[in-house]
């Protein structure tokens, strides 16, 4: 089946979907199929031009709420895609050595463009079965304790660490609370800030609150162009401050959750551009662009000693809010 048939279209993408449908329809009148032959190539290319302009216009000016939808798009590249595409020799490592294995956070050793590293990230899953398996990317304490274990190991081995953040937030459940969700997140953030190896963190989709920060306190914090990063989900914020979920759009505007806003606030260090129409339209290219920027970030830290790496990371966080507001 054509991938476009399977694609999930967001509400604001309707005109785009219609245009794409029209192009597909025209193409199905393949030339040479009979007598009433007309030359459709000209029309197709005209429509394609229109489509690309429409995509460009739509995506150049997404509202925070629309970004939220793009960031949560089911066909956006997820951690498993990134691990497969950008890394070689990926050896997944499991378990927190205390309670269990949490597949909301996946991690292990791998080679990134030739260089050995530790890579980890939230995995949301891509169909019902895998979403349940990965708990929709909502980690429990075990997930964060596994992250701590892997980060500390990388620190001892002198391996750089790359994290991919994509979570609605840490899991709010009885078991998670019982086993110390708050402590696990606090300790994981603590570990990030204590590392003496390079740590590059990318918000690839959703950066949901403390559950995101726990693996995002890096030397370089990048965000993909249409990713979001927030202290609370706009829905949650709306239900508390406006006392209704329906005000999620206002909340999304007020909270300043887009990569562009966070760059202005000097909270992140860089934006990874996405292909026209968002990463879900060309995941492979999106991942390559992500890889390039991660490589660039690592290169900027090459030759920095362990103490320097830790010191610069800590100073960077202390400076947030003190400059640039």
């Amino acid at each position: 089946m054509d991938w476009q048939y399977m694609m999930t279209f967001l509400e604001f993408e309707k005109p785009i979907a219609e245009l794409e449908g029209k192009i597909r329809e025209l193409r199905s009148f393949s030339p040479g199929s009979g007598k009433g032959e007309v030359d459709i190539t000209a029309e197709v290319s005209q429509l394609e031009g229109k489509l690309s302009k429409l995509l460009k216009d739509t995506y150049a000016d997404l509202s925070p709420k629309q970004k939220m939808q793009v960031a949560r798009h089911p066909e956006r590249p997820h951690f498993s895609d990134i691990a497969n595409h950008l890394f070689e020799d990926f050896v997944p490592l499991a378990g927190d050595r205390a309670f269990g294995e949490d597949e909301a956070i996946i991690g292990g050793m791998a080679r990134f463009r030739g260089e050995a590293c530790v890579v980890m990230g939230h995995e949301k899953g891509s169909d019902t079965q895998s979403r349940i398996k990965h708990n929709f990317g909502m980690a429990r304490p075990e997930g964060y304790r596994k992250a701590i274990r892997l980060m500390e190991m990388a620190d001892r081995f002198g391996l750089p660490i790359l994290t991919m953040v994509d979570t609605p937030g840490a899991y709010p459940g009885v078991g998670a609370e019982e086993r110390g969700q708050a402590e696990a997140i606090a300790r994981s953030t603590d570990t990030c800030l204590n590392l003496r190896v390079p740590l590059v963190c990318t918000i690839v989709g959703e950066g949901g609150s403390g559950g995101a920060v726990a693996i995002a306190a890096g030397n370089k914090v990048l965000m993909m162009e249409h990713a979001i990063y927030s202290v609370i989900s706009p829905e949650g914020c709306a239900s508390i401050l406006w006392r209704t979920n329906e005000k999620a759009e206002e909340a999304a505007n007020a909270l300043k959750i887009t990569a562009q806003d966070l760059m202005k606030l000097k909270v992140i260090d860089g934006i990874v551009e996405e292909p026209l129409g968002g990463a879900h339209r060309d995941p492979e290219r999106a991942m390559n662009m992500l890889g390039d920027q991660i490589e660039q970030s690592l290169r900027e830290m090459a030759g920095m000693g362990p103490d320097k790496l830790r010191e610069l990371r800590r100073e960077k966080f202390l400076a947030i809010g003190e400059i640039g507001l």
Binding site: V231, C237, L255, L318
Partner: peptide
């Protein structure tokens, strides 16, 4: 966290942690 300060309030998690370190 104080929602009215958005991401800047979230950033107090790593910032205070640095001070404790």
């Amino acid at each position: 966290a104080r929602m009215q300060e958005g991401i800047l309030s979230l950033m107090q998690m790593p910032r205070t942690t640095v001070a404790l370190q």
